[in-house]
Amino acid sequence: MTIASDDPRVAAAAAPPPAPPPGPPVRRRRRLTRNRWGYAYVAPFFVLFACFSLYPFLYTAWISLHEVRLSDIDGAEFVGLGNYTALLQNEFFWNAARNTLTIGVLSTVPQLAMALGLAHLLNYKLRGRTFYRVAMLMPYATSIAAATLVFAQLFGHDYGLINTLLEAVGFDRVDWESGTWTSQFAISVIVTWRWTGYNALIYLAAMQAIPGDLYEAATLDGASRWQQFLHVTIPALKPTILFTIVVSTIGAVQLFGEPLLFSGNGMTSGGVSNQYQTLGLLMYDQGWTNFHLGQAAATAWAMFLIILVVVGGYALLARRRARAER
């Protein structure tokens, strides 16, 4: 039945199941599954992708290696990594990177923690649950521009509602816009306001997918509600939490509209002393205020690298933890 193979390695591997007997000669046939159609279906997307994403990405890389002015694109001069080294010596870059990090942490960490708590609350049996969900998602439907303009008014020094209320309970008025911490805090509030409800709904969806008998089993094992939350809900939500952290991080690195409009009277490049200039804003400033495209392109690539490093770090961390649990 089994034809012994000359190669002992193959023979050994094939020993338990009999090796395929020599059948009739194998013909190559026209494949019946019409797989070539796959290319036709993805073509529209990839044509657009090539024109408006891939080509620009590469072009940006090229620009970042050149000294280019917006007014004279053809007169580009190759400077190697000059733009990158200049960037690393540029105090504005480090300032913007610091601001981006602070605002990112201030807006992401409380946002996701609150979203988790809200999702837990929304997961109870509620009267009018649709109302709460829709209300919570309203900020997500509000544009960055509108939200920032409204919050700029609320945080305004002389006429802002927040200062009015602070004064009413006996505090001094705060000049939110001109302080470093205060402005970054205020901008983080805008981001948090817009995204908390959205993330809460994502967590809620994941919570509802947890099988109910898991909780019943935990109840029988004598776990309190809080213990159930810690030992049943959170572990089941881990992939979702990681997902939201990654998405929020990518968003935080690119933060642009909120600081651009935060002064409340037109666009700024991040405050008088750049106290809330983010990387996105710096890049815009380099390219469209100073017309220094090479610098702007280098900043854009730096932002991408930061995202890659941070997301890669999360992935490593998640993998290591998963391994440790096993």
Binding site: P56, Y59, G280, A300, W301, L308
Partner: peptide, 16 residues
């Protein structure tokens, strides 16, 4: 591509 910031594309797009 979902990880690539918008910023990476806008200069060439603007030139285009």
């Amino acid at each position: 591509t979902m990880m690539v910031p918008t910023q990476l594309a806008i200069i060439p797009l603007f030139i285009l």
